[in-house]
Nucleic acid binder design. Structure first.
Lengths: 222, 222
DNA sequence: CTTCGAGAAATTATAGATAATTATTATTTT
DNA sequence: AAAATAATAATTATCTATAATTTCTCGAAG
C-alpha cells in the first residue's frame, strides 16, 4: 500500500475497513458507527458514509436506513455461492487470459505457489494464493470481470480468516501445479476444469466454540 | 416503483440517475455535477455524493478524485465482456433455479416472452425480456449472484438503448420458447446451453452518425 | 493566428451544525 | 416483581458553510 494521498479520504477509509472486515478484526454483525470511525480517522462523517456505500456494494456491510450499518453476516450457503461464482467467472477469465500468458508470468505464478506451500500462517497463504489467481487471470484484459472476481476473492478471504484465524497446516497445492503444467503446454481445455474444481473446494474444520462445543467451520481454500 | 419515502434520499437519487444513464437520457462522458443534481432534487450534495458511489459500484459512472464524476463510457469490447459474464452467471443461476421452477412460474415467463414479441418499442421489449430472465433465475435463491446479474442486465439495457433508441422491429424470440420447452421437460442440460448462447447473441445495426456517415451499433439482444 | 499563462469562476471535498429517528434507561402501574 | 410507558441519551441522516482544487476565460506575447 502506498501513501495514497492521491485518492480521497473516503476510499482510504473504505480500504482500511474492508481489510478489517476481511481479516476478521471486525466480527459479523458489528455496528459500524460513523461518528466513532470519523473520529478515529480524524475526519467528518461525510467521507465515512461514502465509504459505507462502497462496502455495501462489495457485500462486506449491510445498511438499514436510519438504523445504521453493520458488518455483513455469512453462512455456509454464502460460502458455496461465492465459490460457485468464482468458478464460473475465473474459468471465463482464464479462457481469455490463456493466449496472453507468457513464460515470465507463469514463472511468477509458480513462485506464488511455492510461497503458498511454505506459508505457516493463514494470512501469508491467502496473500500468495490470491497472487497466483490474479497473475494467471489479469491478462484477460476484461476490467469488469476482474473487478467482480476481486470482490469475490475478498469474500473468500473473509470466510477463510473467520475459520482458520490462528492455526494453519502446511500443504502442497497440487491443483496450482497441475494448472501451471497445462498452461505451459497451452492446454486450456484441461487447465480450465482443474481451476473450476479447485476454487470450489470447500475446506472443513472442527472449531471449538465459546461454550466448549465444537462446530464445523467452512471456507474456500482454493 | 413505489413512493419510496421509506428509504434514503441517496438511494432514491441513485435509482433515478441509474435509470437516466441506462435509458440514454444521459450520454456517456456527461459530467454529473453534484450541486446541480442536489438542486434538482431539492437536497444538499451529501446524499448526491453517496448516490455517486453506488453508481460507480454498478459501473454506470466513473469518478476521478477531485475532478468529478462522469457517466461511464463503453465500447464493443465491454458489450462482449458483459455478454460473456451474463452467460457464465445466468447459466449458473439457471442450474440452481431449475429444480424450484413451478408450472406457474414458467407460465409467467411465457407471458413475458409473448409481451416481448408484441413490443413495438425498445423500452417495453427490454422490460419484458428482463422479466423473462428474472423469472426463471430468481428461484435459485442466491442473492449475491442475482444482484450481480441484475447489474449486468442494467449494463445490457444501456447498450441496447444507446443503439436502438427509436426504431424497433418486432421479432419472435425462438430462444426463449426453446428454453421454456426444455425447462417444462425438466431438461436442464439442454436449456442451459441455449441460454448460454442466447445472452451472447450480439445484435448489430447500422446507425446514422451526426456527420451523416453510418457506423455499426452493437448491443446484447438476449 | 496560435500558444501560453494569470486571474476568475465553477466545482469538488471536507468540516461543523441541526433535526429526526432509534435505542436505552428509569419510573410508574398492575 | 414484571410489564408497560415516559424521559433521556445516542446515533443517523441531512443541511449549511468553508477550504482546496480544477476548469474556464480572456488577454498578452511570440
Amino acid at each position: 500500500m502506498t501513501s495514497a494521498s492521491e485518492d480521497t479520504i473516503a476510499s482510504r477509509i473504505s480500504r482500511i475497513l474492508a481489510d478489517r472486515i476481511v481479516t476478521g478484526q471486525l466480527d459479523p454483525g458489528t455496528k459500524l458507527r460513523q461518528d466513532h470511525i470519523a473520529e478515529e480517522f480524524g475526519t467528518s462523517h461525510v467521507p465515512v458514509r461514502e465509504a459505507f456505500r462502497r462496502l455495501e456494494a462489495q457485500g462486506l456491510a449491510v445498511s438499514e436506513p436510519r438504523r445504521g450499518v453493520r458488518v455483513a453476516s455469512f453462512d455456509l450457503k454464502e460460502v458455496r455461492e461465492v465459490a460457485q461464482m468464482r468458478a464460473a467467472l475465473e474459468v471465463l477469465a482464464l479462457r481469455h487470459a490463456a493466449p496472453h500468458l507468457t513464460p515470465a508470468i507463469l514463472d511468477q505464478a509458480e513462485e506464488a505457489t511455492v510461497a503458498g506451500d511454505n506459508s505457516h500462517d493463514v494470512r501469508s497463504w491467502e496473500e500468495a494464493n490470491r497472487r497466483f489467481h490474479t497473475l494467471i487471470l489479469t491478462p484477460c484484459g476484461m476490467p469488469r470481470l476482474l473487478a467482480a472476481i476481486s470482490d469475490l476473492h475478498a469474500a473468500s478471504a473473509r470466510f477463510l480468516f473467520a475459520s482458520w484465524r490462528s492455526e494453519w497446516e502446511v500443504r502442497t497445492d497440487h491443483d496450482h501445479r497441475a494448472i501451471l503444467t497445462f498452461l505451459r503446454q497451452g492446454n486450456i481445455e484441461n487447465a480450465a476444469p482443474v481451476l473450476e474444481r479447485h476454487v470450489q473446494w470447500i475446506g472443513q474444520k472442527p472449531v471449538r466454540n465459546a461454550s466448549g462445543a465444537t462446530r464445523d467451520a467452512f471456507a474456500i481454500v482454493g
